[in-house]
Computed example of a mutant assay.
Amino acid sequence: MLSLRQVHKAFSTPQGELPVLNGIDLSLDEGESLALMGESGSGKSTLLHLAAGLDVPDQGSIKIDGQNLAQLDDAARAQLRCHQLGLVFQQFHLVPSLKVIDNLRLQARLAQREDPEWTNHLIHRLGLSGRESVYPEQLSGGQQQRLAIGRALAVRPRLLLADEPTGNLDEQSADTVLGLLLELVAETRCALLMVTHSARVAAPLDRLVRLKRGHLQDEPA
Rank of each mutant, 00 (worst) to 15 (best):
S129Q: 14
G53F: 02
L182V: 11
Q145A: 08
P96Y: 12
F92G: 01
G53L: 06
S140A: 12
L153G: 04
R156N: 03
G53V: 04
R146C: 04
Q112L: 11
I123E: 10
D74A: 09
Q172M: 11
V56K: 15
G86E: 00
V100P: 13
D175T: 14
S45H: 02
Q107E: 14
G179F: 06
G130E: 10
E114K: 07
R77W: 09
L161I: 00
G179Y: 10
L94I: 01
R146T: 01
Q84M: 07
I64N: 00
Q143G: 12
A52M: 08
R151Y: 03
L54F: 14
R131F: 10
S129W: 05
R105N: 13
R113G: 09
A70M: 12
L98M: 13
L161E: 00
L50Y: 01
H83C: 11
G53A: 03
L85M: 08
P96V: 10
L126R: 03
Q145P: 02
S61C: 07
Q91G: 04
R81P: 01
F89E: 02
Y135F: 15
S140Y: 11
L153H: 12
G60V: 02
P57S: 03
L126S: 02
G150Q: 05
G43M: 08
G86T: 00
V177R: 08
A51Y: 00
Q107A: 15
L106Q: 14
E137A: 13
S42Y: 06
K63W: 03
D115G: 03
T166Y: 00
L153C: 11
Q59S: 10
Q143R: 14
L178P: 03
L139A: 11
Q84S: 15
L180R: 12
L50Q: 03
D175F: 11
N103H: 12
L106G: 12
F89I: 01
G150C: 08
N120F: 03
G53H: 06
L80Q: 11
